[in-house]
Amino acid sequence: MAFINLKKREVQVKIVYYGPGRGGKTTNLEYIYNKFNQRIQTQMVTIKTQGDRTLFFDFLPFDMGKIKGYDVKVQLYTVPGQVKYNATRKLVLRGVDGVVFVADSMTVRRKHNMLSLKNLQQNLASYKKSIFKVPLVLQFNKRDLAEQGIPLLSLETMQRDLNTHLKAPTFEASAIVGTNVPETLKKIISMTMLSLEKELK
């Protein structure tokens, strides 16, 4: 549940980028930070291990300005994708308002996508949240790799594997070059804000 301060008329919205390791979650945030920093006027915090992997989380906060008389502050987080860091993933999910699931389009990563989505469902359930009710956007990342001859999952396969029951909005993306990265972000913020609308009296 978003933090809403009725007295100060301030809303804090937490969006988490979730998905398998090396799927491009951090790259999404880095693209947003590098491309839009002039506008969002913020700093990105990232804690990496020596191998350039996310150790704890990445964090990118920014102000959206006033909406319906409220100062809206958005906080973007990523989780560490590696299986062993589930406690951290679970912790970062606490109080989440919206989720972007970044799936890896490479054929060899098919099973990892499905396991990670299952893991998301379980971790949300531990906070009594349903993956079917939380605002959720699926991003099929790394579509650009097809140009390099790397075998990719077809969009139909990814839809069938991940979205048959969820029916969430999806974006084909390339976080490294930025294709559909802003669109993904705009969609999840828009969905999340609409889900909070009733609370903003």
């Binding site: 959206m64 705009k186 913020i189 828009s190």
Partner: peptide, 9 residues
């Protein structure tokens, strides 16, 4: 909301 997002992104 959409208009603000368009401003930013």
């Amino acid at each position: 909301v959409d208009s603000r997002l368009e401003d930013l992104f």
